[in-house]
């Protein structure tokens, strides 16, 4: 498993497509959990988390399930935890869930790249 993370509109998807050529990408907001477990690469993984939570599904064990069922997936996700604590209850829960899920996934990833201004910095290469 590898991850590419960073703020919105930083060129993560472009860099991911260049870094991992030949991968079949799906978008987080479009896929079911079943499809996620078989995906080669996921763009906008944070949007999968949002969709699941909006539809009332728990994401508590999502990281463990992905590591178990799809250990070779490439995940591209926004970082969403760098602002003021949101006033809205759902927004707060979503923001924290992205953090917790991605922290566990990063622990299970062999490589994590952080993208700022289109530039990728490898922050983990195990």
């Amino acid at each position: 498993m590898e991850m590419m993370i960073g703020g919105a509109f930083q060129g993560k998807a472009d860099l991911a497509e260049k870094t991992y050529p030949g991968i079949r990408w799906v978008r987080g907001e479009d896929v079911t959990k079943e499809e996620l477990m078989k995906a080669q690469g996921v763009l906008g993984f944070h949007r999968f988390i949002k969709k699941e939570m909006k539809e009332g599904r728990d994401v508590k064990d999502l990281a463990e399930e992905l590591i178990r069922n799809n250990p070779d997936v490439i995940l591209v996700s926004d970082e969403v935890g760098y602002g003021v604590v949101p006033v809205d209850t759902f927004d707060r829960a979503y923001r924290e869930a992205v953090g917790r899920v991605c922290t566990k996934l990063a622990a299970g990833s062999k490589k994590v790249t952080r993208v700022i201004c289109g530039i990728g910095t490898v922050i983990k290469d195990a």
Partner: peptide
């Protein structure tokens, strides 16, 4: 330091 839910 770090963002929310980041393992700080």
């Amino acid at each position: 330091t770090g963002g929310s839910g980041s393992g700080k």
